[in-house]
Design a protein around this nucleic acid. Sequence first.
DNA 1: GGTGGAGTTGGACACCTGTCCAATTTAGAA
DNA 2: TTCTAAATTGGACAGGTGTCCAACTCCACC
Lengths: 175, 175
Amino acid sequence: MSNSTAERLLEAGREELRAVGHQTLTIRMVAQRAGVSSATAYTYLESKNRLYAELFWRFLVEDEQVAEGADAVARVRSVTRNLANRLAEAPELAAAVTPALLGPDPEVDELRLRIGSEFVRRFRDALGAKADVAVLEALALAFSGALLQAGMGLMTYAEMADRLDSVVAVIMKGN
Amino acid sequence: MSNSTAERLLEAGREELRAVGHQTLTIRMVAQRAGVSSATAYTYLESKNRLYAELFWRFLVEDEQVAEGADAVARVRSVTRNLANRLAEAPELAAAVTPALLGPDPEVDELRLRIGSEFVRRFRDALGAKADVAVLEALALAFSGALLQAGMGLMTYAEMADRLDSVVAVIMKGN
DNA sequence: GGTGGAGTTGGACACCTGTCCAATTTAGAA
DNA sequence: TTCTAAATTGGACAGGTGTCCAACTCCACC
């Protein structure tokens, strides 16, 4: 059932993250919010990084929109815009996930791959049949870079969309 | 003098980082290696993140090579190759700096900008007079993305050079 | 109605981070 | 040589992380 302890903890984590940010969040506070002891929390949330990665994954797949547009450029842009807009809605989560995925915790290994693959899949779908591997890689790297720079505060998640539009154009011009 | 306590601490930090990795390094161990008390260490190294950012900055500027090549593509590649090769020499430092710059510590703010600007500067120089802003941005984002992915272990620093070669080609084709 | 195993709990543990400060050491100036 | 100001030190502190485990609760099933 969706009210299992594990689910309640994830939900509490989401709320706590929104409320205090990823730097301030502590597992013990999440436990408290979920009405559970911290020992129990650690039973389900192996680590803060794992929590963030899991929340981000759920957030990511929770409402994929089909890329629309006549040409590949438009479709790719709809992917980046869609992602950027969603991230802008949950900046705390976005800020949390980048460092989380950089962590060494073996328990995030799988999520790291899953999240990375999901981005690539979306770009591949948007590119359509003529998906050039080099173009795909360029898009994936540019998008990762945008995530990193936004995570560093060098750009806001709101700006991300516009910046990526022009980068997408550059990458796809002549390819 | 170059043997000041501050310098000795940075040097000890470099050694310790190489020896045990950024996850395991503790300021107190660095202090010990430098033959200094931990209170003194904290006087000079405001935080681990600051230490990593500072070490990275020094590493970055310590031997810049002039970008060579007849055309812009070749020059940009020489920049990415040079950086990738250097990072490959110090993977522990490279792995340390990405999360460090993502940290909130106000004391890394300045380094974050300085390091980012340095990358952009190198790309701009390589592009030469006809430096299109969008191209520059695409290169910077792709390079950041490569740093992030390498930091996550999705690629090695050695692979980075090759991967970026093809990405650079894609970005600059037709621009 | 009893009982066993899963789930949960409190609290100790080892260790880290950064901060703080009173006390001491060390040099360079007088 | 003596004095003073800066550098250094030891050690305590508050708070976090993640681990561990013996004890307790509860419910499904016999």
